[in-house]
Design a protein around this nucleic acid. Structure first.
Lengths: 232, 232
DNA sequence: ATATATTTTTAGGGTAATCTAAATTTTTTA
DNA sequence: TAAAAAATTTAGATTACCCTAAAAATATAT
C-alpha cells in the first residue's frame, strides 16, 4: 500500500503501460452501459491480486482517470474514457497491420498488439491509419475508433438469438482466444461468411448450421455464444 | 546499490527494456574493435548517473551478458553481443518501415524506433523483414543485421578523408540528430548522391563541395566529420 | 614519487508496481 | 436480523531502476 503523493494534474501527462492497461480493461468490462467494475474483476483481468488493484485504483483516481469510491467499484471519467479509446484504437490498427500487411493469422496477433498499443506517438497512429486505408474494423470484427475518439459499437446479434432457417452474416467474435479462432478457421467460419441455422437442439442448444450455402456442421452453444452476426 | 541475487542463468531469458538499451549502447560505444566501455560513458549515453550504471553493470554481468571487472570498464560477452544485435536489427527494420511505408522523414524516426525495438517477438521481426523486402540498410545507411545475427559494417570513408577533386558516393551519417539530418535535407545531400570535393580551406577544414554535379555549397568540418562516403 | 584530480564503487534511499496477511466493509444466508 | 461468507482495503514487504553523498581506486601532474 502506497501513500498519496499530491502531484499536480496536467492534461497531457504520460500514462504508464500499466495504467493504460487498467483503463482499457475497465472500458471493456464496464461495457456499453458504463457499469461499475469490481476490484475482483480487475484483479482477474490484470492477473494481479485485489490488493494491487486497490493501489492502482487510488492512483488512477488521483490522476482523474476514474471515478472511485472505496468498496463501490469504478467507472471511467471522460478523460479516462478518452485515454482508453486511444489505446483501443492503437491496438486494433496494429492488429490490422499484422494481419493485412505481415500475414499473421487472426489467432496470432493479440499478444503482439498488446505491446504495440502502448507505443506513444500520435503521428505514428495517424500515419499507420492512413497506410492501412482507414480501416473501420479489426481482424476480429471489432470497430476501430476514429482519430477524434469516436467509437460506435455496431449492434450485432449473437448467433444464439438467431432462429431456425434464418440466414445471417458473420460479423465478429466475442472470444479472441487463439484456440477458438483456430477452431473457426478449421470450420471455415470467417468474417463475412453466411451462416444459415438449420436445426437447434432443444436439450443443449447446440446447432446444425450451413456455411456459405455449402458445408454444414454442428456447433455447441459455447461457440454460438461467441459469434456476432447480422441479418441479411 | 543492490545485493547479488544468485539467480540461475537460462539461455532464453527475458531482458528488460533497460537491459536491452544498455547492451545496445555498449555495442555502439565499444565500436568495431570491441573496446572497453567506461562507466561514465554509459552514464552519459543512458542519461543516468554513474552509480546507477554500476548497479546495472553488476546485473548484466550476473546474467552473463557482459564481461565486467570493477574499475576496468565493460565488454559484451558473445551472448550480450547476440542480444544487442537483435535489438539493433529490430531498430533498423522499424526505421525502414517508418520511412518507406509510413512516409516519415529520416529525421523523425529515431525515437519511435527506440520504442518499437523492444517489442519481443522473433516471428514479428522476421515477417517485418520479409514485408520490407529484406532491406540491407536503414534510412541512415546503417547496415541491418541478418536473421542469423551477422552484422557486417561496410568500411566507408569519412568525408574528411576525401581529397580535392575526388568524387564520392554518400552512403551514411554518423550523427542521427534531427537537426543534422534536416540540414542535409535542406542542402540536398541524400543517401546515394554524388559529392565532389572542390576546395578545402586549410585553416578550418571547411570545404566547398558539389552535389550530383549540380549545385555547390560550403560545409563545415563538423558536417564533413559526420558524412560516410565511398569512392566511385 | 607524491599530491591532486578524476573515475568508479559503495552506502543508504526513493518510487512504481507488485505481493501476502490481516483488518474492515458489504453481501448473503439461515 | 444476526452470523457467516465474500469482497475490498490497509499494513508492511519486495524488486527493478534510479538517485545523492561519501569512500575507494585509478589516472594525472607537479
Amino acid at each position: 500500500m502506497r501513500k498519496a503523493t499530491g502531484k499536480m494534474v496536467s492534461t497531457d501527462m504520460q500514462n504508464s503501460f500499466t495504467e493504460e492497461n487498467y483503463l482499457k480493461i475497465i472500458h471493456s468490462l464496464s461495457g456499453r452501459e458504463g457499469l461499475e467494475v469490481s476490484t475482483n474483476a480487475l484483479a482477474e483481468s490484470t492477473a494481479t491480486r485485489a490488493a494491487s488493484v486497490t493501489d492502482m485504483l487510488r492512483k488512477l483516481a488521483d490522476k482523474g482517470l476514474i471515478h472511485y469510491k472505496k468498496y463501490q467499484g469504478v467507472r471511467l471519467t471522460d478523460l479516462g474514457e478518452k485515454v482508453a479509446i486511444k489505446v483501443i484504437r492503437k491496438h486494433r490498427l496494429w492488429e490490422v497491420f499484422l494481419v493485412e500487411k505481415l500475414g499473421f493469422g487472426w489467432d496470432e496477433v493479440h499478444d503482439i498488439a498488446e505491446e504495440l498499443e502502448h507505443i506513444p506517438s500520435e503521428v505514428l497512429v495517424e500515419k499507420l491509419d492512413a497506410f492501412l486505408g482507414h480501416p473501420r474494423f479489426d481482424p476480429h470484427g471489432d470497430p476501430i475508433p476514429d482519430s477524434k475518439g469516436n467509437l460506435t459499437e455496431p449492434d450485432y446479434l449473437i448467433l444464439t438469438d438467431v432462429h431456425i432457417s434464418e440466414k445471417v452474416l458473420m460479423m465478429g467474435v466475442l472470444d479472441h482466444a487463439p484456440a477458438f479462432l483456430q477452431y473457426l478457421d478449421r470450420s471455415n467460419i470467417t468474417l463475412g461468411c453466411i451462416i444459415e441455422v438449420k436445426e437447434i437442439n432443444d436439450y443443449d442448444k447446440s446447432a446444425f448450421v450451413q456455411i456459405n450455402g455449402a458445408h454444414t456442421l454442428f456447433i455447441s452453444l459455447e461457440v454460438s455464444k461467441n459469434l456476432l452476426v447480422q441479418r441479411l
